[in-house]
Design a protein around this nucleic acid. Sequence first.
DNA 1: AAGGTTATGTAATTTATTTTCCTTATCGGC
DNA 2: GCCGATAAGGAAAATAAATTACATAACCTT
Lengths: 287, 287
Amino acid sequence: MDLFHALTDEERSRSRLDAKITALVLDDVDFVTGSTINELAERAGVSPPTITRFCRRLGCVSFADFKVQLARMTYVGLRYLKPELPTTTVSEVIDDIVVKAQDTLFSLHNQLDHDRLEDAARLLRGAGFIQAVGAGGNSSMIANEIQNRLFRLGCHVQSTNDKAMAVMLAAAATPDTVAIVSSMTGRDVELVRCLDLYRHHNVLTIALTQSGSPVAERASVVIPIDLPEGVNIYRPTSTRYAYLAVIDILANLVAYADRQKSLQYLRRIKEELVSNRDGDDRQLLGD
Amino acid sequence: MDLFHALTDEERSRSRLDAKITALVLDDVDFVTGSTINELAERAGVSPPTITRFCRRLGCVSFADFKVQLARMTYVGLRYLKPELPTTTVSEVIDDIVVKAQDTLFSLHNQLDHDRLEDAARLLRGAGFIQAVGAGGNSSMIANEIQNRLFRLGCHVQSTNDKAMAVMLAAAATPDTVAIVSSMTGRDVELVRCLDLYRHHNVLTIALTQSGSPVAERASVVIPIDLPEGVNIYRPTSTRYAYLAVIDILANLVAYADRQKSLQYLRRIKEELVSNRDGDDRQLLGD
DNA sequence: AAGGTTATGTAATTTATTTTCCTTATCGGC
DNA sequence: GCCGATAAGGAAAATAAATTACATAACCTT
C-alpha cells in the first residue's frame, strides 16, 4: 500500500497525535517536505520520535524516506484528499481541475489491466473493420477519438455517437468486424441492447467502462476504468482524461504492432497537412 | 529556474565531476532520492562535499532539498530528459503516455494566464451566441467539447469542424456573437482567414493556441498554450490534455459566473438522462 | 482498581550533512 | 614550459538531524 492510501485510509487506527500529524501533513505538504523532523515535531506539538514512529507506521523506513515519498505524490493526488472545497477564484479553479486531472491519470495508471489492453489491441489490429460507439457527450468524444487515432494507422474504422446507428452497424457487421464501445456509467440501456445485438451477430466487442456494470458484463474484452466521480455538478468529469489516455495507449499498441505500415500511413497524412500550412515541417499530425 | 531545467541545461558549465553526478542523477533518480549523501558520493566516486556543492549549484539549499525537489519531478517530466526510448511493452507504453499527459498538465498549470482566462470566460458568459471552431482531429475534439460543455450551462453555442462553415458563420454573426477557436499549431491558413473575417465583422474572438502564432496575433483574447511536443510520430499529442483542461476551466468559470442559472440547466438535463437509464440517480451528466 | 498495553517524551547515541581548511588540477600569460 | 591565479575537490572537524533506549504517562480490560 502506498503512502497516498496509507495517509487517507480511514480504517487505520490512529492515536490522538497520529491524527494530528496526519492532518498537518495533508494540510501543508510543502511545509512537511521542506522541514526537518524537529521543525515538524514542533509545529505538530509532538516530540521528534513520535514523528519517526508515525513515518514507520505508514510504511516508510525513515523520516527521510517519508519526505521523499510525500514529495513524489505532491502532484499526483494529494489535493484530492481534501474535502471538495468551494472553488471561487480563477486560481482555485485552475488548481482544482489540473490536480484532479493528474490524479485521475495517476489512479488509472495504478489500475490498468495490461493483459486486457493487449487483448483489445490484438483485436483491433486484426479487425477488418472497426465500429466505435459512444454517445452522450463524454463517450461521444471517446468514440470520435478512436476513429481519429485509428484511421491514421490504416485501420478501417467508423465511429458513431448514435446508438440507433450502432444497431444498424451491428446488423451489417461482417465476421471480421470488431466493435469498441465507451460508457462511463456502463448502465446505458440502449448501449446494452447494442451489445446484445453485437453478440448475437458474433461480433467481438471491447468495452471501456466501469467494471461489473451491465455494459462490462456483455463485452468480449473489458478494459475496466473505475474512478471516483467528483461531486461538483458544475464541472465536467475528470474521468474523461482517463478514457482519453486509454485510447492513446490502445492506438499506440496498435501502431507498434506493425510499425512499417503505421509509419507509412502517418507520413502520407503528414505530407498533405504540411502543404496546407506554411510549409513548416515541425507541425503536428492533425492540428 | 527549476531543478528540471537546471539539470538539463546544456549551457550550464560543468566540471568533470559535476557532469558525472548529473549523469548519475538522471540515470537513476530512484536511487538518488533514496540514498544518503555518502551513498551517492561513493557511487559517483566523489566526496560528500562535492555532492553538497553540486546541489547548491543547482539552486537547492541543501542535499535534502535537492532530494525532495528531485522526487517531486519524478512524475512530471523526468522521462523527457532521456532520449525517446522505443517503448515496446504494454507497461512502457502506459507509463509513457500517462507520464507525458501528467507532465503536460503540469506545464500548463505553470503557464496559464489567469487574467486571460477570466477575460475569455467573461466574453463567453456575456455572448448571445457562441461559435466554436476547430478542425483537424485534435482541435475538432476541442471545438466539440466547447459546445458540449457550454450548452449545458444554457449558452447558445454551435461548434464546427469545418473551416468553410466557420466563414459562413462569421458572415452570419450578430454583434453579440463570440467565436472561440482552437489550433495547436496556430498556423492553419484557413483558420487565419476565418479570424480575419471575424474581425472584419466585429466579432470578438478567443483563441486557444501557441503564443506568437498567426492565429494568436489575430484573436481578441488569446489563451496561450505552449508545450513541448514529443518527437515520437506514433504518439498522438499529449497536448490534447492541456487543451481539454483549458476547456474544463473555462466551462467552470462560465458556470460560476451565474450558478443559479447553470444549476437550473444542468438539473433539467440530468432529469432527462436518468429516466433514460435504469433510474439510478448517481449517474453522470452525459455519460 | 490492578495489570497489562499502547502512546509519548527525554536524553543519549548514532548517523548524516555541512563547513573549514588545505591540496591539487587547470588555464592564461609571459 | 614556467609562474601565478583561480577553480575544483578532498579530509577532517564541526554541526545538525534522526533514531534508539529508556522512562513515564495514558488508556484499556476485566
